[in-house]
């Protein structure tokens, strides 16, 4: 049986005031929110802009808000967020500039990931000699930006490095054998708008669709930064 659904879609085109459009569609309850958005685009409004690629939670490009929470719409079934006859409100991620409709500008976000030294495209390097348990989670980051949208601190501090970049920094720090590289990363994160800006709300960890636990990584970096500072006090090299 198909469900009757109302999609309320946040619309925005540069130079025009934002508005909300309402669409009625029929959809199997097991279909995903992205299926719904695609159906609207295919059958009702070709000007609707949204982003997606893989359809199975590995590319991280489709992240949006659905009924006020961040989701990867490609893996969330409509029955998880509403019922037959119900409404799904979709909109762009928070805390990013909106390019058009559901598409946000990820530019700054990717720049920060790169700054940390995380290759955005490229092979995953093996973690030689490292306890893998600490890192395997980071490898899961799909750079979807959901953690930044969920973070109450990113909301009001545009200079905050943000959870994903800090999680990447944690991984790079521990994966590197090069003391200069370690120092470079520490300098990047051990600052006011780095690890110390976090207010421990743990929303990033709660929202991350990929179990990266960015908040846990931020706390790990804080601990490392503290250890390094104490060691410095005694004239020791950073651990």
């Amino acid at each position: 049986m198909t469900w009757q659904l109302t999609f309320k879609v946040a619309r925005y085109k540069p130079g025009e005031p934002p508005r909300t459009d309402t669409f009625q569609i029929e959809l199997d309850p097991e279909r995903t929110i992205l299926d719904g958005v695609e159906k609207i685009w295919a059958e009702q409004d070709r000007t609707l802009t949204f982003r997606h690629a893989c359809h199975h939670a590995s590319c991280g490009s489709c992240a949006i808000m659905a009924n006020d929470v961040e989701v990867l719409p490609c893996i969330v079934e409509v029955n998880q967020v509403t019922r037959n006859g119900g409404t799904i409100e979709v909109g762009p991620l928070h805390n990013f500039p909106v390019v058009s409709d559901l598409v946000v500008d990820m530019g700054t976000f990717f720049e920060r990931m790169q700054q940390v030294g995380m290759p955005i495209i490229g092979p995953t390097d093996p973690l030689d000699n490292q306890p893998k348990d600490d890192f395997h989670a980071y490898e899961n980051c799909i750079e979807c930006g959901i953690c930044l949208s969920a973070c109450p601190v990113v909301a009001t501090d545009p200079t905050y490095l943000g959870p994903a970049a800090l999680a990447a920094a944690y991984r790079q720090y521990h994966n590197s054998d090069d003391s200069e590289e370690k120092q470079r990363i520490m300098n990047l994160v051990d600052r006011e708008n780095g690890i110390w800006r976090c207010h421990v709300a743990y929303e990033c960890t709660a929202a991350c669709p990929s179990n990266v636990d960015p908040a846990g990584k931020i706390m790990g970096l804080r601990r490392q930064a503290t250890v390094n500072r104490v060691r410095k006090l005694f004239g020791l090299k950073p651990a």
Partner: peptide, 28 residues
């Protein structure tokens, strides 16, 4: 906002455009 604090070579997150900056404080 203290954009000067941003790490070198990065732009600031200007926030969601259709939403006024004041509204983002409500998020707290």
């Amino acid at each position: 906002m203290a954009v000067s604090n941003a790490p070198e070579g990065s732009r600031a997150y200007p926030g969601q455009q259709p939403r006024e900056p004041q509204k983002r404080v409500l998020r707290w």
